[in-house]
Write a protein that binds this DNA or RNA. Sequence first.
DNA 1: TCACTCCTTGCACATATGTTCAGCCAGCTT
DNA 2: AAGCTGGCTGAACATATGTGCAAGGAGTGA
Lengths: 324, 324
Amino acid sequence: MSTAGEAIHPDRMRDALTAAHLYYMQDLTMDAIARELHTSRSSVSRLLSQARASGLVDIQIHSPLDAPSHLEKEILDRYRVAAHVVPVPNHTNDADRLERVALSVARILGQYFDSNMTLGIAWGSTMSAISRHVIPKPTHNSQIVQLNGAGNMRTTGIAYASEILRRFGDAFGAYVQQFPVPAFFDDPSTKQALWRERTVTRLLEMQGRMDVALFGLGSPFSNVPSHVYAGGYLSEEDYASLSASGVVGDVATVFFRADGSADGIPLNDRSSGPDFAVLRRTPRRICVVSGSSKLESLRGALAADLITDLYVDEGMARALVSAP
Amino acid sequence: MSTAGEAIHPDRMRDALTAAHLYYMQDLTMDAIARELHTSRSSVSRLLSQARASGLVDIQIHSPLDAPSHLEKEILDRYRVAAHVVPVPNHTNDADRLERVALSVARILGQYFDSNMTLGIAWGSTMSAISRHVIPKPTHNSQIVQLNGAGNMRTTGIAYASEILRRFGDAFGAYVQQFPVPAFFDDPSTKQALWRERTVTRLLEMQGRMDVALFGLGSPFSNVPSHVYAGGYLSEEDYASLSASGVVGDVATVFFRADGSADGIPLNDRSSGPDFAVLRRTPRRICVVSGSSKLESLRGALAADLITDLYVDEGMARALVSAP
DNA sequence: TCACTCCTTGCACATATGTTCAGCCAGCTT
DNA sequence: AAGCTGGCTGAACATATGTGCAAGGAGTGA
């Protein structure tokens, strides 16, 4: 069990708590609070920042039940997933879209995850961005499990993936279960052998018990290839094989076609990611997508029924409901 | 069923919602939001105010479970009630204390009340202050019931009490049940007769089904008499009778002694307020007290087991744990 | 159509808040 | 004890936010 968030001196936290009360519940100005706390206004400003960043202050936005935007309702009707459209101006570049969607998800994640739960997480640029902003929430007896290995031909990937895992674990005070294997095995039988090892079966069982899964999408053939496709995970032949199989995207390094099917895609036999059947058994499957190039991948994932809750930027949401 | 809060034009609300997302979830500046929304920065400021005031944005403060202040823990240990100490500087006058405690309670009330629930409320200066600040929260099929009549020798009290009721009703979109009777009857038999009327028994049944009761405390013999004791509700003889019975305070115009007993206090037979047995059956009984003069009254109410959740200013909390 | 009210807007100003920076202090190493 | 490091502080400055006000626009009744 890792410790939650940054260690904060208890006295400081009590001050932060008091400041938050005075500021958010009683509408005092920071100046007034500074006087009550016998400190400077700047310190109060900093205390309040800490209070927000450490989850002492929790800001939620409730749409009155009738308010879901036209887009969210349309997506619900057509795809049966709870959509959350993150407002983003049209001309925004993909990096900013990713950042804004990730920030929104990071701040709302606490609403999905609680004590005694297991959260499965993937890795990739989206997950990395989210991990950098999660807001701490203390939980007990909760677990975070890595969905797929991150090793590739050059590194074990442990540093990268574990950094992401660690951030989530710290934020929730959860036990973190890493998955120190390559994203793809060279030989399927190695995977099968390893999958019979008890350290691995234990992890697979945790995956099977997940309450929430959080993942982005890969899109191999878009003009902006995702982390997996740029990071030395796949060889030329692998890539060709994907193309030949009609793959449009992946979730946690498991691939699927436009119609949502995933059977008979050779690479999946060598992938360390969870079988879609396992994923579909997870009650909440939160998918975070941003950037125009992932539309086809998203359509495939929706067809595959991999998603229960979808976070997208506004542009993607529009694209999703406009075409057939 | 009254309509919730102020009527807001739906377009405006969607803008407010978007602004809130951009401001609170994505940390954009109001200036940036103004550009995205094609309006002026000042309008964004106003949109955000609306979003907060109308409950679109919900700000909560979570003390990490180990953080309850020394005072709150001490009160829990000694009196078995969940105490919430509202920080207030020592030299604050009673009017400000009342206002600050009321504001805090108003903003937190939504956490206690939800759809399909019944809320009982008293009246008085504390309740009035709270009512002026409640933050709207949409609920369904919920009810608000007046605990005790407000009529006195000069007025029916309906305007005063109903204004308080209405504010709560508006905020929660709840059905409001007023209690248009005098606070005290002149003749106990009038009360008994009326208590057999179906309009009244229906209301008494609602009181019996309350999920939450919200009330302040009266303190007849303090130097700062409460509303009841100043407003022409009681005659000289009544007052003398209370004194003779050893009364230290009241909840919803039902009186009690320092040891929490209420039997044999003549005025209670003429009071319109709920029998303490009814109150004690209510799962949550939230008492809001501020101002130094109500200490003895509070002690009595605690002894009478009328309270499950206590909101007090810091001074009162200290006083409560300091003396025997 | 006009006159009127009521509500909304953006501007300009007044405040409130965030952030940089230099100084200080506590705790640790040598 | 001296020297160092890291974290915290308040002053000063740079930004961001709140609000009074005059102007404009939609609705309403004469």
